Simulated assay, not measured.
Amino acid sequence: MEKEGPVRILFVIDQFTSSHAGTEGQLLQLLSNLPAGQFQPELLVLRPSSYVEAGKMPCKTEVLGTSRLFSLKTWLAMFKFAQRKKQEGIALCHVFFNDSSIICPPVFSLVGIPTLISRRDMGYWYTPKYLWVLRRTARFVSGVVANSAAVKQVTAEKEGVPAARISVIYNGYSASTDELSPLTPEERSSILSGLGLPVDGRFVVLVANLREIKRIGDAINAIGTVRNSVPDSHLVLIGGGNQEPYRELAVSLGVADYVHFLGERSDVRNILRAMDAGLLCSESEGYSNAIVEYMQARLPVVASNVGGNSEAVEHGVSGYLFPRGDIKQLAAYLVCILRNEDGSAQQMGECGHRKAHRRHGLQTMIDSHAALYSRVLSSRLGAPDVEVR
């Protein structure tokens, strides 16, 4: 498609509050790394946030100013915005999060701008009202980007988007050799002591915001059982959210001294290098960013067998999958990894590391999106899915 200058793409998201969150982090990578000679990104957020107001975004950013999904005022404001963007030369819209994916496709279709939507979870937010609307706005969607085959399947089934219009593009991450190389014992001790952790302990890390859907309580319950077999084991929790109920649970179970709350961190990668196992207990997952970070850090992974987790973790090869909520099995797998009697933990970590490098390189993700954008703009929607294995 011949066009003077780079193609202008508008990205839309309900709200952008942190660069460390999964969806926001992937969007930020797109905004920062799409080839400048080919694409010129802009961003619209429905609701303001301190992060956006601080001017941290790498491209032109606007706030809609009204965001109630079922308000006529919101739809009128979006229509006027879409008209202006069409006049300014926006050629494509790519939408993230729920409300934006309902309002943008029909509105931007009216002004002649094709719209892609992203799906990155198993639809835990679906309600009968949302699904009713989504099934009717699906005909305005030019394509869907799913971050796992599991998400693709649930999107097609629930929202009625034809599977041929859903492309699987796995999450992408930058990785330097220095950051991801194995630590020396001295380097590991330095990291642990800097975090206030015992240097001779063995550590299970769980990276997730402290929300009910992440089932943090399962991890806290399991660590007591794990310590019966591995007395120097500890649980390290990294993520924002209300710690109080989980601290109370740890106290009630008598494991408060072995559960460490680090809060939201910007140095997660470095911390992971000093850990022994990565854990995810979630009720639902599309494709976990945390699991990829664990694999990059050469950690064997124990994860609930939900959503796209089975696409990320090869059971018995790069880690273990346990039935959601099965604390006994979860603990048993952690004990197996921490004891490491046959040396398989290191082999699992290396296997995961190779897979992360192959599937989740940042450039792979960027190139896959660029190819999809070009395909949509060329109206070749019947081409094979963009799918990176």
Rank of each mutant, 00 (worst) to 15 (best):
V7P: 07
V7W: 04
R8S: 09
L10N: 13
F11P: 01
D14H: 00
A21K: 05
G22C: 03
T23N: 11
G25N: 08
Q26D: 06
Q26C: 09
N33D: 12
N33M: 13
L34I: 11
P35T: 13
E42L: 12
E42K: 09
E42P: 04
V45G: 13
L46D: 07
R47T: 11
P48C: 07
Y51T: 11
Y51H: 14
V52W: 07
G55Y: 11
G55T: 10
P58Q: 14
K60G: 14
V63R: 03
L69Q: 06
L76T: 10
A77L: 07
M78Q: 02
K80L: 15
F81N: 03
R84Y: 01
K85M: 15
I90V: 15
L92W: 05
L92N: 10
L110C: 14
T115H: 07
D121M: 00
M122A: 07
G123A: 11
L131Y: 01
L134C: 03
R135G: 07
T137C: 05
A146W: 04
S148L: 12
A149G: 15
V151S: 09
V151Q: 05
V154P: 08
T155W: 02
I166S: 04
S167M: 11
N171D: 12
A175M: 12
L180D: 14
L183H: 04
L183M: 07
S190R: 15
G194M: 13
G196E: 02
G196Q: 06
V205P: 00
L210I: 09
I213R: 01
I216K: 01
G217F: 02
G217M: 07
G217K: 02
I220G: 02
I220M: 01
V230N: 05
H234Q: 03
I238E: 01
G239I: 12
G240R: 03
N242D: 13
E244H: 08
P245D: 08
Y246F: 13
R247A: 06
A256D: 11
H260G: 13
G263I: 13
E264F: 04
S266E: 07
D276S: 05
D276W: 04
S284L: 08
G286E: 00
G286D: 01
Y287S: 06
S288R: 04
V292E: 02
V292P: 12
R298K: 15
V301D: 00
V301C: 03
V301N: 00
S304K: 02
G307W: 00
G308W: 01
S310N: 08
H315P: 03
G319T: 05
L321R: 01
K328A: 13
Q329D: 05
A331W: 00
L334Y: 08
C336R: 15
R339H: 11
Q346S: 14
Q347F: 03
M348K: 10
E350I: 12
E350G: 04
G352W: 05
R359E: 09
G361S: 09
D367Y: 11
D367P: 07
R375L: 11
S378D: 15
R380M: 10
D385S: 15
